[in-house]
Design a protein around this nucleic acid. Sequence first.
DNA 1: TTGAAAGCGATACCAC
DNA 2: GTGGTATCGCTTTCAA
Lengths: 335, 335
Amino acid sequence: MVTINDVADAAGVAPSTVSYVISGKRSISPGTRRLVEAAIRRLGYHPHAGARALASNRTNVLALVVPLRTDLNVSVVMEFVASVAGAARMHGQDMLLLTENDGPAALQRIASSATADALMVMDVEASDARLPVLAALDRPVVLIGVPDAPSGLTCVDLDFSAAGAACVAHLAGLGHRRVALLGPPPAVYERGTSYATRFLRGFGEEAGRREVHTVTRECAGSYETIDAVLDELFAREPGVTGLVVHNEAALPALLAGLRHRNLRVPEDVSIVAVCPDSMAGQSAVALTTVAIPAEEIGAQAVELTMRHLGGHTTSEVRLLSPCLTIRDSTAPPPA
Amino acid sequence: MVTINDVADAAGVAPSTVSYVISGKRSISPGTRRLVEAAIRRLGYHPHAGARALASNRTNVLALVVPLRTDLNVSVVMEFVASVAGAARMHGQDMLLLTENDGPAALQRIASSATADALMVMDVEASDARLPVLAALDRPVVLIGVPDAPSGLTCVDLDFSAAGAACVAHLAGLGHRRVALLGPPPAVYERGTSYATRFLRGFGEEAGRREVHTVTRECAGSYETIDAVLDELFAREPGVTGLVVHNEAALPALLAGLRHRNLRVPEDVSIVAVCPDSMAGQSAVALTTVAIPAEEIGAQAVELTMRHLGGHTTSEVRLLSPCLTIRDSTAPPPA
DNA sequence: TTGAAAGCGATACCAC
DNA sequence: GTGGTATCGCTTTCAA
């Protein structure tokens, strides 16, 4: 193994000088710098991560805690993972991936053992059992999602309340008077996942303001479920012309179900979907969407984390404004 | 921070004893063990990962290199990630996630800096540019996928050749004489992704043996592409009654396209899909599949990695036998 | 602008 | 069965 001493010897300088050349924490004469850098390259030197962590109290590793439940959309999760990984690299950090079924003990372990410098936690529930543990850690924590009581933790998320409102506003603006919300499966509400209720609130409030009649249905993504929901919905609420879908998994089955019933999109039924923009083109009709900006959220999460690692201490709840993109799935209601 | 010395003091023993209690590398009297374990719990001690790595040359971290290209199926990738993470935890390892756009230099860095003990690499191409780098690393490497020349590296994968054969065999057994393969997008072939060509070979060979007429089409997952492919296919090859789909992304569009043409599954057209079993129920008709056993492959990859870390040196190419599950999308061809 | 040397917190060898 | 201690490779303070 090539050590800092090998490099120092090769360059004819002291180990500390090599260290300073690498870290840039003190000025180095151009000559020495050249010598050292050449030696580093020639020997293929990479500082030993463990030794570095021990001496400097920094691992340059960020831990990301992801949910791997099957009831939530894997591709959305994957977008977050990818964006966090990318952003982390831009900041010179590696990413440790923890799955949440390791439980809160794993969070303790990672923090106390100095395996990572900070934690980022996805899919935080309204009153998440991990919050007390997280808040007590001696390391920065950034939540992706917003619990009811952030207890001093920094959070980033889409402003789901505003997103819900935007969906209703768009449909109402087109003239729809009766709108249905197809939400996440019951399990998501039971878990108390906060984004679901926040969305619902914004949706309901805007509907009240606009005097739009609304109904909501929770639904799983399977074809049977969606079929049943559609049957029941159109039987009980015949006047519904607008659908807001806050459940990416349900989209394929929903579109199939509508086609099967000879309901055209957008002529007979308008659809606004809440999903990553990359998903908008996955169906026969390009979907009008409120984007889930995974890329942006991931980048912000990393940036806030780095800021905390840099000494910034004040916590913050950062909500990103929703962005609605009109495509081919929304139009005025049939006359 | 709680150190091993704190624990030793609290328990009234030497630091080395604490270390041995934790590692189990030498026998400890029940009394001392109790004392030490109590102190560890009481103080909430977690060994410093960096210090440990420095002293023992072991990080207990495995690096997983994943592709995050958009042209390949994210949920399949995610299944692998989840299964590797789970298996790693069972072996007491954490998982560092590297995205492949960090390039080969990142692999070098992780290995040379002792950030991880071993590397697992997904989505290996037939003649992968990273192979020389990987083979030269001083750490265990396990490939998920099989390059043309494994150059002494251990590999795990589904036996895609056998999988291709199994698809044809099943359809031929039902009486189909003309079968089409809808494969991955052209980009996958251009990259020289080995599983695609291996599948193709098994598919072709079995077709030859069974005297089944075959055609193949590469296709992207979009509705337009699939529509065009279906148009062209049924125009040029009217007798096709069996479809083998080696492209999960294309399934929704394909099923929609068939329904749109009033072709029933399986009465008019039989479908065998190559995809994770979890995806079989995602469509209106439960699909007959050859499973991509992500769970199993991930577990094997970790196991092989741990074996190498344990001193085992002989490399190996492990191909898992495909498993075809008959569901509702295959039946004898129309008379 | 550079060097020497004291830690960082474990592990594992050598003694007893 | 247990203790003392050199050692891992780096960072950073103190000195020059």
